[in-house]
Design a protein around this nucleic acid. Structure first.
Lengths: 192, 192
DNA sequence: GTGCTAAAGCAGTGATCTCTGCTTTAGCGT
DNA sequence: ACGCTAAAGCAGAGATCACTGCTTTAGCAC
């Protein structure tokens, strides 16, 4: 429920348990899909008592949301200073994250939880993807370019990626990402 | 599993049970979300024994897929013969269907099931939305217009709608739909 | 109407999940 | 080092779920 908003004792044990639980969740979701994952299963995998999970997270949804929230953007591509390239890189990274085992499951997890939990997870998920593109647009604007709005990026790049990954539409690859960016930036394929 | 591919005895009882089960599923998914729905819960709501559900559908995923498959496109807007108007109408209809209680839950349900069941539901869902737009494009092409491809419609109209409904992004309304269509058809708002 | 049998109901089993009181461990302030 | 207590472990109860033999109902062919 509260997950761990205010860990009054964030010492070794708690954080160790948390780490074990988080990696167990990632492993299980990747292996079996989010549906087959239960709190006892996670507990067993993490070598932790299930009562701990019930007390700390309360529900599977909350745990998944917590995991999704805290897995950092490690490996995110750096900005190179060119709008097109940066958009392509971030979009590609988004696609990669979404496609990797469990990626869509975590997306689902954040969409899934019951109504009260739902909005938090959704906003967090949207925030994360937004924050991935905002610096790109800001940097471009500072350079004097006239980049598309964040809304446009979401509609024209992120939304199709999510849609096509969710529906397993073939051909959702790097070339497709480049096409999306090219179309958004003005229909100039400008291929190398 | 097989759902009811070949009902050898499609008489009154079976179809009655099916109808009761289907409406119970719709009701429960709409009320609680697809996660909280179980076969026994559906059985209770439908006034049917749960063993029937296990035998006829086997899993919740199969049942949800069956329900999604069989709920007709009643109320779908007719084609008027104008590309822009038809695209707007179908997109608006899609948005309406998606926004109504349980709509997104069913989308989620089809995204959710475990890997083996998953593809059927997804393909069905995608097929349904595709078939909604294909006639529009075909008709336009027959009239000599040069309509966008179905892929473009999915990327530029359907995907953003799904994305924004899933993430509860405000401002996803009729005006937004018109903007999407306008942008796709050539950036001529052409507002009345 | 009668018989056949597909399909629904009944009832019970084993497994799993969810949750909770109590005990034990160990982080943190002193 | 010591005490306090947050947090983890243990164990078990109750509920629910997934599933299955067996019985009963009722659709369909004759």
């Amino acid at each position: 429920m509260n997950a761990d908003a205010s860990p009054k004792r964030p010492g070794g044990r708690s954080s160790h348990v948390r780490a074990a639980v988080h990696s167990a969740v990632v492993a299980l979701v990747g292996e079996r899909g989010a549906d087959q994952v239960t709190l006892p299963a996670v507990a067993k995998r993490a070598g932790v008592n299930s009562s701990t999970l019930y007390r700390r997270w309360g529900t599977l949804a909350a745990l998944l949301a917590d995991v999704a929230k805290h897995r950092g953007d490690v490996g995110a591509p750096p900005l190179v200073g060119d709008l097109r390239t940066d958009l392509e890189n971030q979009a590609l990274w988004t696609l990669t994250e979404l496609s990797r085992p469990g990626g869509i499951a975590f997306f689902r997890a954040e969409v899934a939880p019951d109504v009260d939990e739902r909005h938090d997870g959704l906003r967090e998920c949207l925030r994360r993807v937004s924050e991935r593109f905002r610096p790109v647009l800001d940097a471009a604007r500072e350079r004097g370019d006239a980049p598309p709005s964040l809304e446009q990026v979401l509609d024209r790049i992120v939304a199709p990626l999510y849609f096509r990954v969710v529906f397993s539409i073939p051909g959702t690859d790097e070339a497709y990402v480049r096409d999306l960016v090219a179309e958004l930036l003005g229909k100039l394929p400008l291929e190398s």
